[in-house]
């Protein structure tokens, strides 16, 4: 990893965490409502995977604020979406769980567990058909690997040798149900092994995530076909803001937080990538300022007009077709 990329990753991880804490704060005040799934603790995976997979297309889940930002969406438009404002990335009609930006080849923001996986497979089919092997990355949690959509997708992706990276974020919990109670083994890559190349990594280490995803993307681009990466992570908060996180002991949370990706990568920044303390602090300051600006922007942005209710139900009105 180059120094420039390391700096970018640290900046985005730090920004991501600050963004999530601000979102939490504004959820408490009522500025943000609905379901809010915070990504605190999992910034390494969200940022490094997006930075490594810079080409191609991305499909992901509802815990996607940081991924969207790392993919290139401006924090202020993401925050505005959380606030339900017209200038939000989805015009205030999607909310926290549905961030879309085709200009960055980022397609949600899907809130049906596993539902985005067949969409990603279809997109990978389209890309291969178009002669484009840059690849599609689909991110999902360990919970999704127990559903039918996941298994159907492995089968189809392998049958057609599609350019797709399955990236499983295994944080061990499907809301409050531990993976041990929902699957016969803890390592979910075993489910993909008969179909494709698999790899298990520490998802809390940005450098490890970056190199694994980069390598996978480069193999896919060379025509390798589908690859499965399982990244072991730990979320520091509950599943969403309505989850009090009572199913994890303080011991478990202590162990979890000891794997905090931010201090780990900060140490790498200072000792492996030759950043000075001042340089790191400058990045942190810049990130905090960006998040503050995002909140200001979102707070002052306009609500969608009432007419927006009826917009975009259909793309084209009747009689607007050339046949």
């Amino acid at each position: 990893m180059e120094k420039l990329i390391a700096g970018d990753i640290y900046y985005l991880m730090y920004l991501g965490r600050a963004f999530e804490y601000k979102a939490k704060e504004h959820y408490m005040t009522g500025d943000i409502s609905g379901f809010l799934h915070l990504d605190i603790g999992q910034e390494a995976l969200s940022v490094a995977a997006m930075k490594a997979f810079e080409k191609g297309d991305v499909f992901t889940t509802y815990r996607e604020h940081i991924m969207a930002i790392a993919r290139g969406m401006e924090p202020k438009y993401v925050m505005a979406e959380l606030f339900g404002k017209a200038s939000g990335v989805s015009g205030g009609k999607g909310g926290s769980m549905h961030l879309f930006d085709p200009s960055h080849f980022f397609y949600g923001g899907d809130a049906i567990v596993g539902g985005q996986i067949p969409n990603a497979v279809g997109c990978a089919y389209a890309r291969k058909y178009q002669g484009n092997l840059e690849g599609v990355m689909v991110v999902f949690g360990d919970g999704a690997t127990n559903g039918g959509a996941f298994f159907e997708s492995l089968n189809i992706a392998a049958t057609h040798k599609l350019p797709i990276l399955f990236l499983c974020e295994n944080n061990e919990y499907a809301i409050g149900t531990n993976i041990k109670r929902a699957a016969p083994f803890k390592e979910q890559y075993k489910k993909a092994e008969p179909y494709m190349l698999t790899k298990a990594i520490d998802g809390m280490k940005a450098d490890e995530v970056y190199s694994a995803v980069k390598e996978a993307q480069s193999l896919i681009e060379k025509g390798h076909g589908p690859i499965f990466i399982e990244a072991y992570t730990c979320r520091f908060e509950g599943h969403s803001m309505s989850d009090a996180n009572l199913y994890r002991s303080s011991q478990e949370m202590k162990h979890c937080k000891a794997r905090d990706p931010l201090p780990y990568f900060k140490e790498k920044m200072l000792n492996s990538f030759n950043f000075s303390q001042e340089e790191v602090e400058a990045l942190e300051k810049k990130a905090n300022e960006c998040v503050d600006e995002a909140v200001d922007f979102a707070a002052n942005a306009k609500e969608p007009p009432l007419e927006a209710l009826y917009e975009h139900v259909f793309y084209e009105e009747l009689n607007n077709v050339v046949s």
């Binding site: 969409n119 279809g122 997109c123 389209a126 890309r127 178009q130 959509a149 159907e152 189809i156």
Partner: peptide
């Protein structure tokens, strides 16, 4: 066979893949 695709018996994927194909620029 690339344009007339025989799928497995997996209806969720037939429609789910078609959604992804449409996102990817095809008209499935």
């Amino acid at each position: 066979e690339k344009r007339v695709i025989d799928t497995p018996i997996a209806e969720l994927s037939i429609v789910g893949n078609a959604v992804g194909m449409a996102i990817g620029g095809l008209r499935p």
